[in-house]
Design a protein around this nucleic acid. Structure first.
Length: 110
DNA sequence: CACCTGACGACCT
DNA sequence: TAGGTCGCCAGGT
């Protein structure tokens, strides 16, 4: 439960629908700013987790859907987010990303 | 056991 | 502006 992965899942599960956060923000929140890659790795292994982990709500720092190729089909991630009210430009980048950004360090502010 | 790779990101040419 | 390097941690070969 104190594993880095488990902590990542705990945070991701707290992301509200219609909001998104970044790999780096989660890593920083967990105290390992340089471990953003691990967050992505954790998402990749999220199927190993018993609970639902909204991996589609985690994007890179530009609001770009860099992980879309890891879903069943490349458009699933985008469609899930659109269902939650997010909009995208022609580059699969989230519009109004700053407004939609959910920073665990701030929102959860321990 | 050593080496490689990866859903990132900050920094440095 | 674009491209290369490095750190981060875990898991696969």
């Amino acid at each position: 439960m104190s594993d880095f992965f488990s902590q990542v899942y705990e945070v991701v599960k707290l992301i509200p629908a219609g909001r998104v956060t970044s790999y780096g923000a989660i890593a920083a929140y967990l105290g390992s700013p340089g471990a953003a890659r691990m967050v992505g790795w954790a998402m990749n292994a999220s199927h190993h987790h018993p609970d639902f982990v909204p991996a589609h709500r985690v994007v890179n720092r530009n609001g770009l859907l860099t992980g879309k190729h890891h879903f069943d089909t490349p458009n699933v991630m985008k469609e899930l987010l659109e269902n939650e009210g997010l909009l995208f430009d022609d580059n699969d980048q989230i519009l109004n990303f700053e407004e939609r950004f959910w920073d665990p360090a701030k929102e959860l502010s321990l």
